[in-house]
Simulated assay, not measured.
Amino acid sequence: MELRIWNPLRHLPLPSVYSNQIPSSRTRSFSARSSHFDPNQSHKLVLEVKEKLEKDHQSLPVGKNGRDDEDLILWFLRDRKFSVPESVDKLHKAIKWRQEFGVSDLSQDSVKSIAETGKAYVHDFLDVNGRPVLVVDASKHFPGVHDPVENEKLCVFLIEKALSALPEGREEILGIFDLRGFGTENTDLKFLTFLFDVFYFYYPKRLGQVLFVEAPFIFKPIWQLTKPLLKSYASVVRFCSVETLRKEYFTEATLPAKFRD
């Protein structure tokens, strides 16, 4: 049986999804214990990756989430098990994607119209494990109606929003897909694949768990088609009931309102 220690942080409200800009993530230092590397050795590898990015990819931006961001470099080194060549390659692709996608330009105004559908949002409270919570209401997602580009912008905006709300010492977020009322008109394999690809390639090891809540029978064949495309993230998916969600992931005070009834 898992022992849960009371965490006062989970009772604190998170920043509103509708702030004017995506808040900057607080600076985090990674300990030797978490990286399993001696701090001096880790720093040497960070500098090596930094030099290679500067030499081979000078066109990449600098600054926060740029090619000289040492926290970002260390995070990708950890993801790539401290392989410098693999880290350089994955970082190059990730930073270039952020630049081309315009991640830093995403704001309340840029996603306002699609956000007003209520299809996805960052919950106001952390779960019992101290993780920010990204909630998706699948029954409000209509790929035949909504602009796929706007869907992707909202997705990335909310990921950034959730990550900016990480408490000190926490590294992962929880994703919840409410599948009650899900029908064929809500099916969107392309977007689901986009979501997991974004986490895999550009936000590695940030998605701690995904809950598929009250999945209807119609969702099962969709899952079988999608599962092979999700790479390692398929292992973090859990199918569960609303009751399980209530008992295992939230307190009475922090449970999202849509799961109270």
Rank of each mutant, 00 (worst) to 15 (best):
H123F: 01
Y249E: 01
V128Y: 05
R246F: 03
L192P: 12
F191T: 08
C155A: 05
D69I: 07
Q224C: 13
R80C: 13
D69R: 12
R78D: 07
T117K: 02
L77A: 02
N7V: 12
I159K: 03
P167V: 03
V17A: 14
A115Y: 07
V237D: 02
V46T: 11
L9F: 12
T27C: 08
G102W: 08
Y18D: 14
I22K: 04
L179S: 01
E48A: 13
E2L: 14
R28N: 05
D109N: 12
L14T: 07
N20C: 05
F212M: 06
P8W: 06
F217L: 15
K44L: 15
Q41W: 10
K220G: 04
E51F: 12
P23C: 00
L211T: 09
T251P: 02
G130I: 00
T226E: 00
D68M: 12
R67N: 01
D137L: 14
E243P: 12
P228R: 00
I176L: 09
R170N: 13
L126P: 01
Q58F: 07
R4C: 12
S24L: 04
S34Y: 08
K93V: 03
N20W: 03
L106I: 05
F194M: 09
R10F: 11
D105P: 05
V84N: 03
P216V: 11
F182T: 04
V62W: 02
K93G: 03
R131W: 03
I173L: 02
E243W: 09
H43L: 15
W75E: 06
S19L: 14
P148Y: 00
D79E: 11
F212G: 09
D197N: 12
N7K: 11
K52D: 03
F217G: 14
R131G: 09
S35W: 05
W97E: 05
K50P: 05
V133C: 14
P204L: 07
V135M: 15
V62F: 02
R98M: 06
A257D: 15
F182E: 03
D178K: 13
K96V: 04
V62P: 00
L106W: 02
R98A: 11
F217H: 12
T187L: 07
L211S: 13
S35V: 10
A257F: 09
C240F: 10
N40W: 05
S34G: 00
K112C: 06
